[in-house]
Design a protein around this nucleic acid. Sequence first.
DNA 1: CGGAATCCTCTTCGATACTG
DNA 2: CAGTATCGAAGAGGATTCCG
Lengths: 222, 222
Amino acid sequence: MSKRYDQYCPVCHALGLVGERWALLVVRELLRGPKRYTDLLEGMPGVGTNVLAARLRELEQGGIVRKRKLPPPAASTVYELTEYGQELEEPLYALARWGARTLGPPGKGDDLYPDWGLNAFAALLNTEAARGVEETYVMRIGDDVYTVQLSDGQVHVESGAVDDADLDAAMGMATFYGMASGELEPRTALEEGRVELFAGKRVNLERFFSIFSFAARDQVTA
Amino acid sequence: MSKRYDQYCPVCHALGLVGERWALLVVRELLRGPKRYTDLLEGMPGVGTNVLAARLRELEQGGIVRKRKLPPPAASTVYELTEYGQELEEPLYALARWGARTLGPPGKGDDLYPDWGLNAFAALLNTEAARGVEETYVMRIGDDVYTVQLSDGQVHVESGAVDDADLDAAMGMATFYGMASGELEPRTALEEGRVELFAGKRVNLERFFSIFSFAARDQVTA
DNA sequence: CGGAATCCTCTTCGATACTG
DNA sequence: CAGTATCGAAGAGGATTCCG
């Protein structure tokens, strides 16, 4: 059984469900779809198989994660978030934005986890600025390529590029981080040649980073 | 030193700062103002003095908490949140709302922590519904009385009542929880005599709980 | 009396090895 | 592939003690 805080309080209750070490990382891994036990192990370096098993058991008891067996051809068991588990997206992204403010750009030895962008763009989305915007962007960051679609106030992200994007830009990770954090002006980055723009520049970088950032969020929400 | 997750990721970084046991409860305690070491101990039953001291040290190193000495008359040291620590309000409240959905109304043996409402109303605030609203409410819940002022999209809560409220209502905790969660219709609660309305009923309960709730939040944010 | 450091026991973690 | 079993190391919780 997981440790509890003996106090009647929503925060205590929430922490009783997902407050233990590794628990929220399991949620992060599952936010973008079901995964197998082994994939989870791989996505969370250092976890230790027994601890992962224990967390999954606790999360399952808490109604956050569900175990499911895939039909025969690929008869493996996967873990997925329940509806209640999916609702952790907002709190988790809020925490991620907060953390990103002091994270700093990645160094060369830092390992990004695969498909980091799938969560990143969703987390950075400024819902107020995105209202009514119907656009598609291709962002090529380091070795990763993402297509970000904005429609009806919702964001949809997937790996890879599409042809008819309103903006198609390539840059390094540190450059992206700088602009998303507000420390680096898109104009400056362009002048210094740190960003390369491809076909379909109907939308400029300023606009993109006014919608996706973790710096402006405070002013906007406040 | 606190345990870390060896992965370059905002969530990992955030959890490295406030992911350890008791850390977020310290933040909860300090959100509404500075507190002394002993007050913290009291507000977090079960913490153990060494663990609290360790957490405070780690939070101080992380730039989340600051230690300050009060001037001579009451020469005691207090702990307070830094600006960066204050920015945890959004993530923490998001987590609290999520937790509240499965918390259920309090039983008789459950101890509410003192001044729970100061955080609760701020956490439940639906910013979209509050836009442009300039009103003051007095909520008498169980033995606690709070004045909730809405102005300029911001909420201000304090203990006690004022005279010129737009709504002044008294109810039990379970009734309040039911209405805030959306499980209990204010109309029904009134018919059953579970809510008592006092002078100044210019605003009805429906309106109040359309602004303060954790049930409707998902539809609104989505 | 407020603000801790110390000591002790117990649980949990992380790593490796092993099994259906 | 999907875990369980085991073991040393680290951390939590509780009580006591110390310092200003």
